[in-house]
Amino acid sequence: MSDAPDELSVLAGEYVLGMLDENEAASVRRRAEIDPILARAIGDWESRFAPLAELVPPVAAPPMIWDRIERSLDAAQSPAPPTGYRPEPRGTRFWRATTAAALALAAVFAAIAYLPRNEAPPRLAALGVAGAPAPAFIAEARGDGYVTLTSVSPAPVPTGRDLELWLLPKGATTVTSLGLLLATGRRLAVPGLADGAQLLVSLEPQGGSPTGQPTGAVLYGGTLITR
């Protein structure tokens, strides 16, 4: 099948405007990887339309964004477990939940059976609750700095609430938000993860914790280990 140049350009334009749904957009992206003409058409629209972003009045970015970017970079650049996490006093409820979640480590071994064989050994964690037959999510961290969270059997998320993912590096005393987690899973950049780091999932108000620390129950948790 070959599209007329016009069709290709329209498709690229719709993609750049953001009008395509998730599947259509993913299909355009895959195709652009092997079709230099489509890739070029996309690049053209990107630079043509970019000035329209000036129509949005600037909004000061919350300082926590830069803090989070820096932590991710620090983690990526130091092979040792990152330090510099500021301990903050916390209530005990969160830590009790964390301890319980850590018990879910055993489920990691069950989870490994689900995963495809691969060349480089990934770090894996099964995020679940102790005693549950299957984990809620499986986290897989590869050397490329990305973690993929695959949904296995999470409990339904109540309306008006969101799941938020947290990182507790080994030896750290404070968690860092990695952002919201959809029930369908997520792939996100978390460079520099080391064995022993814990991933935790808490139930938060819609849109995520307003405080930058977990405010709701920790539902799932697991510890990353090299497969």
Partner: peptide
């Protein structure tokens, strides 16, 4: 950041989602 955060916020309509977009994009 203020220019880009505004763009992300306009599209996502939610500050935590806009923050996620900024974090991932800057990495």
């Amino acid at each position: 950041s203020s220019r880009l955060y505004a763009v992300a916020l306009r599209i996502t309509c939610r500050a935590p989602l806009a923050s996620d977009a900024m974090h991932d994009a800057f990495l």
